Amino acid sequence: MLRAPFELFSERGYRGTSIAAIAERIGVSQQGLVHYFPTKNDLLTAVLELRGQWDVAQVLRTGDSAPTRLDLLADLVEYNTDRPAIVQVFTVLAADSVTENHPAKPYLQERYGHVRDGVAASLRQEFGEQLPGGLSPEHLAPLVVAAMDGLQLRWLLNPEEVDMPAPFREMLTLLRAAAGRRRLSPSGERSRVKGWAVSMLT
């Protein structure tokens, strides 16, 4: 039932998608659809929450193999290449949300805040309080998030030519080279890496 709103929000955006169009795509009556989702906002919330659940599920599958939090972020970037439809709908809704009174705006503001704080914690875990160039983790974290979003957009526009995970991993390599070290977490700490990532995505 959530596949149809996923597809339509991706194709038309939130405001361009009607309950009638979603019901038609599913193959049910509008009355049948609103029995489960009384409003379009309820459908939007369900779609966004489902995306978050898939992210968490991926962390649980791969978290034990990621030596650091930054490596786990790189794994998630690579995982997104296997689910273009999900990345597309999230990108469309994020762009839509900048308009006035968009219902997804509070959710996305909160999510980006969690992601930014999580990336700052990842940078602090590996590099300490001062990063290359004298930046603090809080100063660099928004740039890392912007790089992730920019790579996603370029990949959606030209997936045949843009290798989304490679530039992100190269950015981490540059950071580590500039810092002059790569501090790997001991194997006993990997469960904490996974636990942190789950909390960041929820």
Rank of each mutant, 00 (worst) to 15 (best):
M1L: 00
M1A: 01
P5T: 06
E7Q: 12
F9A: 00
S10P: 00
E11P: 02
E11Y: 02
R12S: 07
R12F: 08
G13I: 01
G13Q: 02
Y14K: 04
S18G: 07
I22D: 04
A23Y: 02
E24V: 04
I26M: 00
G27N: 09
V28R: 01
V28T: 07
V28E: 02
S29D: 02
Q30F: 00
Q31L: 01
Q31F: 01
V34S: 01
H35L: 06
H35N: 07
Y36T: 12
F37S: 05
P38M: 08
P38Y: 08
T39I: 05
K40R: 15
K40C: 07
N41K: 11
L43P: 03
L44Q: 05
T45M: 03
A46F: 14
V47R: 02
L48G: 07
G52C: 12
G52K: 09
W54D: 15
V56F: 15
R61A: 15
T62I: 15
S65V: 11
P67A: 15
T68L: 01
R69Q: 03
L70A: 01
D71S: 10
A74H: 02
D75W: 00
Y79I: 03
N80V: 10
N80K: 13
D82I: 06
R83I: 13
P84C: 06
P84K: 03
A85M: 14
A85N: 15
A85I: 13
V87E: 14
V87C: 13
F90R: 13
A94Y: 04
A94G: 09
D96V: 05
V98C: 03
T99V: 05
E100Y: 04
N101W: 03
H102Q: 04
P103K: 05
P106E: 06
Y107I: 10
Y107V: 10
Q109P: 01
E110W: 08
E110T: 08
R111C: 03
Y112N: 11
H114K: 11
H114C: 05
V115S: 05
D117A: 13
D117N: 10
V119E: 05
A120S: 12
A121N: 12
S122P: 04
R124E: 14
E126H: 09
E126G: 06
E129Y: 09
L131G: 12
P132K: 09
P132Y: 11
G133T: 12
G133H: 12
S136D: 10
S136E: 14
S136R: 14
A141T: 10
A141F: 12
V144D: 02
A146P: 02
A146I: 03
A146E: 08
M148A: 13
G150Q: 09
L151M: 13
L153N: 08
L153C: 07
W155Q: 11
W155N: 09
W155S: 10
E160C: 02
E161T: 13
E161Y: 03
V162H: 11
D163W: 09
D163Q: 10
A166C: 03
R169P: 06
M171S: 06
M171F: 06
T173Q: 11
T173A: 14
L174S: 05
L175E: 00
R176H: 14
R176I: 06
R181A: 11
L184P: 00
P186N: 13
G188E: 14
K194S: 15
K194Y: 05
K194G: 13
G195Q: 11
G195L: 08
A197I: 04
M200E: 11
